[in-house]
Design a protein around this nucleic acid. Structure first.
Lengths: 337, 337
DNA sequence: TTAATTGCTTTAATCGTTTAAAGTAATAAC
DNA sequence: GTTATTACTTTAAACGATTAAAGCAATTAA
């Protein structure tokens, strides 16, 4: 079955292609197409099962009604949540989402961004990876509409939407302190990513402002390429201190899932021996024998904000938005009361 | 910064557009372009930062080098796994993946398929939802290359790639029997989806062939729109029998996660009181106090097979493939030994 | 010397749309 | 009866690429 185009409808009805185009684009009224022809054209389109060729339309209109989304890793809970939220919002606005996962790899990230641009997406929503600054600057120079989400680079002025990571970490740490913990460990990735560093800062400031003297052995930085081993060593260390830690705060869901697995292996009693708190969410947290207290990110709001901001940019409004959102502390039973 | 096209390069160098196109498509040799011009053209393309407009190319070539993927629900573990696998394989073959999630909704499914076709994807990989038969038949009539994955309709002859669900359920049930279980419950969704019904059949046949008399109270069918309550009632019932079940086999990860949550709430001892086995995988399974024994689907192989089959369809037409894959039983500690 | 060949380049049609501009026939105005 | 207006419809040029086919020198062959 060969593809039917405007031409086929035009021939079938016996009018010109233009007329068909007008009618099918709802311009029948303003182009004063006769009711008779309008009717015939609609019928024929239906009959022949016409489907507009978006490619041709895009070429002519210089608009694809598509936005590109690059997440850091599709296996993250955050990624599926944000993808769903962005898709839902985009659909409402009649946009399609083209999607890719960089797997935290700088080159894959660049390739994806390139591929999306070549496909003429109208704009991009990006979760940038470490060292992708040049790529971001390139987008700015090329004047391609984009918004960063989840992460941003403080040295580059961009439109971005992210959690207030400092405040989230601060609040959570303070929560642990209020629960009576005195020796709180913080396990984070070793990274230059600003949003994760902000979590360190929040943790440290909360300790300081609550007059808890920080012990350098409490802050653990895990190398993502050696995650499992590093986490195990970190946990061994914080539990093996002369004054062992009585709480551990994980900076991401991936860290805590790994960590919990090891704590299980050690048959550690949570929260009896040590309290656990984590950033992000995971279905595993609910299923854990003591549901894990965690900081839930407002992915729906983020997704909506990202799409809305991007569409403003696409529609030529020179806007500058840096949106900061708050996380919810979802209390489980993994923290001593 | 305005977009640079072949024309800009041609003007910059002082040659025709055709020459530029030949050089940039690696046809310099066979079109016998002079080394001098070829060199100049390449330099100019670099200098002007030329990016081919894939939209224009697609229009001309009637090929977008894009495949559309519709998963059932991006929140399923299966979906992220298969998406990743398909993306990786597609990338190897130089295809891009356009992606959507139907959320198990028939209309959303139809809309997504439509949108992808309008975008002129070269073919589709689909996880069809309940009652999407008409949509599938429409694709066949329109001769659009597609392959079904995970699920299929026995009444429609299609190319599809899926687990051997019967055998998987059979093997797992038999495993439980071999471990000495006598009263094995099976919790599935109430559905017309063939692949889930096959799981019922495998469960039932395993009982029969092992001379265990089936008790109708063991087979529970959960309504997905009332999942949590239905699961809880099911579990109450199988535990409340005169002869309570000593094992429960969940037909999907979503069912077992919900079920385990409730079993936790009841403070049931797994596997002491009841053994648990599940289809699919989940990070929650690993983190559960007794890692959950489960049937892992070979998503990488499936993704590869799906892409390979689809590309064959796209390129050479007329093949017929029904690929059946085997699952692995990953043994945790949730089954009595 | 003329014709054929080789080496390289340009012309122009095409893909399926959109849309300004021009065309046409019927009716209304003067 | 001529001109203007109205009510439609068609023509044709884009959009940015690909690629047969044609064009044009310079070289070789007859």
């Amino acid at each position: 079955m060969k593809k039917v185009g405007l031409k086929d409808i035009a021939e079938h009805v016996g009018v010109s292609i233009a007329l068909v185009s007008y009618v099918l684009n709802g311009q029948a009224e303003i182009k004063q197409v006769s009711k008779e022809n309008a009717e015939k054209i609609k019928k024929a389109a239906e009959l022949l099962n016409y489907r507009p060729n978006q490619i041709a339309k895009s070429l002519k209109m210089h608009k694809t009604h598509t936005i590109g989304l690059v997440v850091a890793d599709i296996n993250y809970r955050y990624s599926t949540g944000i993808t769903r939220a962005i898709e839902a919002e985009a659909k409402k606005k009649n946009y399609t989402v083209l999607f890719g996962s960089s797997n935290e790899n700088e080159e894959t990230f660049a390739e994806l961004v390139d591929a999306l641009i070549n496909r003429q997406v109208d704009g991009l929503i990006l979760v940038p990876v470490e060292n992708s600054q040049d790529q971001i600057r390139m987008l700015q120079k090329a004047e391609i509409p984009f918004v960063l989400i989840d992460r941003n680079f403080p040295e580059i002025k961009t439109n971005h939407i992210a959690l207030d990571n400092y405040k989230a970490a601060y609040t959570a740490t303070e929560y642990l302190i209020k629960q009576g913990h005195k020796r709180i460990a913080f396990v984070n990735y070793k990274t230059t990513l600003f949003h994760l560093q902000e979590r360190n800062r929040g943790y440290l400031d909360a300790l300081k402002n609550n007059r808890i003297e920080f012990n350098a052995a409490w802050l653990k930085e895990v190398n993502s390429s050696n995650r499992t081993a590093d986490i195990q060593r970190s946990i061994d260390e914080i539990l093996g201190l002369d004054d062992p830690c009585d709480a551990v705060f994980f900076a991401t869901d991936t860290l805590s899932i790994n960590g919990l697995k090891y704590l299980n292996q050690l048959k550690t009693n949570i929260p009896g021996q040590i309290s656990v708190l984590s950033f992000d969410e995971s279905e595993a947290f609910e299923l854990f024998y003591c549901p894990v207290t965690h900081l839930r990110q407002p992915v729906e709001a983020m997704g909506k904000a990202a799409v809305d901001t991007l569409l403003e940019l696409i529609n030529h409004n020179k806007i500058s938005k840096q949106i900061s959102l708050m996380s919810d502390l979802v209390t489980g039973r993994s923290c001593r009361e």
